[in-house]
Simulated assay, not measured.
Amino acid sequence: MSWQKSLSSTIGRKIMMSLSGILLILFLAGHVSGNMTLLMGKADAFNMYAHFMSTNPLVQVVANVFKLFFLAHIVYAIILTAQNKKARGGEAYKVTNKDGSQVSKYMGVLGSVIAVFLVVHLAQYWAVMHELRGEISTTTIDGVVMKDLYSVVAVSYANPMIVAAYVISMFVLAFHLWHGFASAFQTLGLNNKRYTPIIAFLGKAYSIIVPVLFGAIPVVMFLNS
């Protein structure tokens, strides 16, 4: 079928990678918004947020869609990296932007670090929340019994090694976003003299603000523990 051929082409793969990247950018924005309750030390608010995110049917459907796009982002990244390396006789894949800087030189390595971080992150919190790793205590808020995920996070961020690893991972995420945000829009052809500078500015601002907010959470919780 024509759509299958399009997705298997180099251009199709780049488009899918860009689309999945943009969706993941939206996911991160939503995720950090909910996690701001941690930064403010609001245990009940965070537990209510976690309870809603884990029990609402519509949220679960959206979450599963994001999971598929995340896997697609990884798969297409691996395929494109291997394809470009092969086309260059084994040389590392390099892409240069208009100012001549090598914006993709380390994207594969950074993406791999982020993927490892996500696996560990899920093992620490998602698996615990779904009781795949032991039992979790509960709390009652407004008559509703829910899992006390805030305590799980608080105990975890009392460990300086975990805090340090998290902060380093957010630095890696920032670098990855710094070079990937604008690139995703360029691949989709959403660039012109009027909008490209705006997209570039928003991308750089997002790449700083979101990872800083994520990284501030474990630091603040550790200092308050």
Rank of each mutant, 00 (worst) to 15 (best):
S18Q: 09
L23K: 07
T37Q: 05
A45E: 00
S225Y: 11
I15D: 09
F46S: 00
V116D: 03
L122I: 12
L110C: 01
Y106E: 05
I79C: 11
F201Y: 13
M53S: 15
A43I: 00
V62F: 08
M1G: 13
M129T: 13
M161N: 14
L80D: 04
E131P: 02
E135F: 08
V155R: 14
W178F: 15
S20A: 09
G89W: 04
T139L: 02
R194P: 02
D142Y: 10
M221K: 00
V32D: 02
F70W: 11
G89S: 04
S104F: 09
M16K: 07
L26N: 08
F27D: 04
Q102E: 15
Y76F: 14
D148A: 01
A115Q: 02
V103P: 01
V152M: 01
T10H: 10
V220N: 04
F201W: 14
V152A: 00
D99K: 15
S225C: 06
S8W: 15
I22L: 09
Y106D: 08
A115C: 03
Y195I: 15
W3L: 10
S9T: 03
N224W: 12
Q124T: 13
V109S: 02
V210F: 11
L68A: 09
I168F: 11
T196F: 09
I22N: 03
I209K: 09
R133E: 08
G143T: 07
K105L: 08
Y93Q: 12
G203T: 01
G203K: 02
P197L: 03
L132R: 09
L24H: 14
S54M: 07
V219P: 01
V145R: 15
A87F: 06
A123G: 09
F214R: 09
K67R: 15
I136A: 01
V220Q: 08
G111I: 03
L118Y: 05
I198Q: 08
V145W: 13
H51L: 04
G34N: 04
L173P: 07
K42G: 03
I114D: 01
S101M: 06
V155K: 12
P218V: 03
S20E: 02
L223N: 05
M146F: 11
K85W: 10
M40L: 14
L24S: 15
E135L: 09
M48Q: 13
K86P: 06
V75L: 10
V220T: 05
V155F: 10
Y157L: 04
G34P: 02
M1W: 08
S169A: 12
A182M: 13
K42V: 07
S9H: 08
M16S: 07
V62K: 05
V219G: 01
A115V: 07
S151V: 00
A200Y: 09
L38I: 00
F27H: 08
Q102R: 14
M107Y: 06
W3D: 11
P197K: 02
S169H: 07
N192V: 07
V153L: 01
K105R: 11
L188R: 11
Y157M: 07
N97I: 12
S33Q: 11
A72E: 06
D44S: 01
L24V: 14
A92V: 10
Q4S: 13
F214A: 09
A43D: 00
G21M: 03
V220W: 02
I141L: 03
S20M: 05
Y166L: 06
F175H: 14
V75Q: 02
I209A: 10
G215I: 06
